[in-house]
Design a protein around this nucleic acid. Structure first.
Length: 229
DNA sequence: CCATTAATTTAGT
DNA sequence: ACTAAATTAATGG
């Protein structure tokens, strides 16, 4: 747990914003980060707690979700390695506006948020990359907004599957990391509808489901379903 | 069209 | 074996 996988200087997976920093900066960050290992299901950050750090997903997959008054959560995003959790807390009230949990065993590189704020102010290149990340994030949420507000269950499920296939796993085949309940929290439909819609897609030969292995068999049909809404 | 309810089956520890 | 999760079918807003 205390072992470091790599140093920041040579980290092959570090976020692009760190490419704008020099060797001394990397050494400085090295002194101010910790590596954390989370098992599937473990909470990485809790909504409402102090946002004292930015969490970089070194490996694994993480869900970011809102805790609502009801027992059901709302999943905002499912994020692959290479992404950062906590950027919306930069220069704001220092409290996490959402929770995050591992949906696969994950390694997180946690960096003091003040370092991010300092580099953002002092280094234009670093700031550009942070803005780039934040823009990717808002664009993603435009798509999510359209999906959840304007599409019917088939379209919403198609969007979820396309995101997992194209953005998270970059593969036509992947082990579905989300439970039916989590898929329902992601697509804003009942868990019963999740099974019904997935069965329909499998019946129609658009996807294949063998246990937890999910295969996209007909990506064109899936994209059509996404567009048709 | 889809959530809800309830009954039943399956999976995970 | 026991509990939680998933599936299936029926009902109704």
């Amino acid at each position: 747990m205390t072992e470091r996988l790599v140093s920041c200087v040579s980290c092959p997976k570090r976020s692009s914003c760190f490419n704008e920093l020099d060797r001394a900066d990397h050494r400085f960050i090295e002194e101010n980060r910790v590596e954390l290992h989370f098992s599937k299901g473990e909470v990485i950050c809790k909504q409402g707690s102090f946002a004292s750090n930015i969490m970089f997903i070194y490996s694994g997959v993480v869900k970011v979700y809102l805790e609502t008054d009801s027992k059901e959560h709302i999943i905002l995003s499912v994020m692959p390695s290479g992404k950062m959790v906590g950027l919306p807390s930069l220069f704001t009230d220092r409290v996490f506006p959402y929770s995050a949990a591992a949906v696969e065993d994950s390694v997180i590189c946690s960096v003091d948020i003040r370092i991010f704020e300092d580099f953002t102010k002092s280094n234009g290149g670093f700031a550009s990359e942070i803005i780039h990340s934040l823009n990717d994030c808002t664009l993603h949420f435009f798509n999510r907004f359209v999906s959840v507000t304007s599409k019917q269950v088939n379209g919403r499920m198609a969007d979820a599957l396309l995101h997992l296939s194209e953005k998270v796993y970059v593969s036509r085949e992947f082990i579905m990391p989300l439970s039916r309940a989590e898929l329902s929290a992601l697509t804003a439909m009942s868990p019963e509808s999740v099974t019904r819609v997935l069965n329909k897609l499998a019946e129609d030969g658009v996807i294949g489901m063998n246990g937890k292995l999910c295969s996209i068999l007909d990506i064109d049909r899936l994209k059509k379903i996404s567009q048709a809404g």
